[in-house]
Design a protein around this nucleic acid. Structure first.
Lengths: 211, 211, 211, 211
DNA sequence: AATGAATGAGTCTTCATTCAT
DNA sequence: TATGAATGAAGACTCATTCAT
């Protein structure tokens, strides 16, 4: 049975791959068309220009990404907050690992001051901030941390969660580690779990992995 | 006495600023020339093309950056290794803070699979890996960590050190934190110091800041 | 009873409107399709391409336009020639006023050296010349005018008849006069009537308007 | 002695010629570049896009055109107003005859509702209106005409002055008359002079041609 | 009768670079 | 050392049209 993959999806896949490797500005619509084996005109036709294609990628990523955070935030009412936090961490790592090309491109483009990117991402990032705050504040409970400290903790957590994917090629070449690998998530999760326990919750020993 | 700032330097400054904001591929040689108030032909003339300009930026960054690591590695023979590590961390944060535009652009371009960038950076990154390893292995001494663990620790440390600068504009807009600010380094250093003590050296309490 | 306006007519109306505003070359088939709320493919389907649509417009205009001239020429045998001429003038003004969009576009496109337009219009324009000549020669009767003079008179008459419509938007913006307005025809006819009497027939006073 | 005609001028000449024949929208930058034997990129380089080229043409035309009107308006204080009016007419005819390609293209593009064209021309056209009004009101002196009549007279005069040039190709093909011909101006001026005397000034006989 | 996907040619424009000066 | 003119290649995008449905 022949499965007809829609042109639109083929284009998105090719775009993610190339944006990831060469960056958005470094990739031409012709490159994408050639890789997707479609007519270049189709891209403007389907996505209303190259920009629209990038927007599509960004939205695709953030919608899924924030869903994982939201899930765990809404579970805070019923479950141990540190479990929720850790599960969120695990889910985000898994999601990024499964979509490592998309993740890399998103985090990189976000680091630009591009007008377009900011218009789309700024509200997502504010929401992300809100959700992380909820999770972390619930997890630490006590007043050991100042507000400013919490900001820094979140920034650190975010650093740890995104860097391996943003610098996927660095991990590969310098450390021979593959972020898209199933085992990477398991292994790397352990280290973040340690960091949460030791640095954030100030426990001496980590016990079990949720999920 | 009139100080004539060389055309060459003016160009580099303009380039760093624009590459930082728009990315390398998103910046045209004319943008740079206009910002530097020089003739576009000068850029090809001085740097043998746009690419040469990027190379210059990368080299500029890595030469300085690795010097700080080297300094501390060479001090390992004479001083407490954890002090060396922490001092290296502090120096790197300071350096990046003082050169936040350059830092951001370098770490972003490194995240691309661009042939050019890799040719220049790969040896620097291998050297960086070597130096971090030296510092960390000396600091932890005991055998609590496997080789694989050490890799992950370095990756984490690097994440913590670079992310705030790579995502300078995110910190600014979402958290109202300014990585180029003097106080940022002081503050942020504390958190990494904590992380080193708790997560890496597994001490319970950090006491003083080595500069 | 539901009146179904045919797709074909909808397209023509949209085309006249847009060709009029933006010119033939400045209007895309998609503009027309969007305005007419039909599928772009229909235009090629019904008119065998964009060109066919323009041809349709030109033919539509000239067939009607020349009919008015012909009517009056054929009445020359039975009525006062100056009445016929004036009635022709009046009819042409009315026709153009009622179809001011179409008129504007036709006279403009005729001013181009476009191969296509000329192929269609040249025979119409020769016929127009013949009819005007008949009317004017009959009206002036006497030999006061040389052949060359008559040419110029016709050119002048044609100028006076077409300009207000060709420059509809100029009249609107600069003079606040609306050529599609019923009163415009009445008023403007008076002035041309004066011109015919004074300049062409060299009468001192005109009295009544023949419709 | 070799005279180096500047690239810029070569482009303008080619543009006038082609815009004239094919219309602005119907002419591609490549057409112009080929005709002017320059690189297409030069056109965007010199005129900041195709639009800039059209603007240049429009400004070129109107600046010269209005100068003739202004000259005669400023002479109204010292000379017979009907002479001034007639001399203005003559000058405008001459100017258009000498620049018949440019004239045709300008009057045609003015008949479009194009945003760009209107932005540039609207102020020129208001000024033109003002100057014509001055000239004609001075010439007719008496109160025989209502304000509305004067509007119509100016519109008619303008029609007579511009039509032969706008429809240059019509005159050529249908009447074998060449508006760029020196004799055309002389001949055609006579007819407008007649019209001014008979229709506007209501004199019975014209006597001499000023200039 | 009517459509939506798809296409190849063509649009204007910008690019990095070269070269005579 | 520095410039401005000039260029060919490539950029994104729009075009009229075709074709299976």
């Amino acid at each position: 049975m022949k499965v007809k993959v829609s042109t639109k999806e083929t284009i998105i896949e090719a775009a993610i791959s190339l944006f990831n490797i060469q960056g958005y500005d470094g990739t031409s619509i012709r490159d994408i068309a050639k890789k997707a084996k479609v007519n270049p005109a189709n891209i403007s036709y389907y996505f209303e220009g190259k920009q629209g294609l990038l927007e599509k990628c960004l939205v695709l990523f953030f919608e899924a990404y924030l869903t994982y955070l939201e899930e765990e935030v809404s579970l805070l009412a019923y479950e141990r907050p540190d479990y929720c936090l850790k599960r969120a961490v695990y889910k985000i790592l898994s999601f990024q690992s499964n979509n490592h090309l998309l993740s890399r491109l998103v985090w990189r483009e976000v680091s630009l001051d591009s007008q377009i990117v900011r218009e789309i991402t700024s509200s997502y990032l504010m929401k992300e901030r809100f959700l992380y705050k909820k999770l972390i504040e619930a997890a630490i409970q006590e007043n050991t941390y100042s507000i400013s400290d919490i900001s820094f903790l979140i920034i650190q957590l975010k650093s740890l969660l995104t860097m391996p994917f943003l610098n996927g090629q660095y991990l590969r070449e310098v450390w021979n580690i593959f972020p898209q690998d199933r085992y990477f998530v398991e292994k790397y999760y352990q280290h973040i779990d340690d960091w949460i326990d030791a640095g954030l919750l100030q426990k001496t020993k980590m016990v079990n992995i949720p999920i």
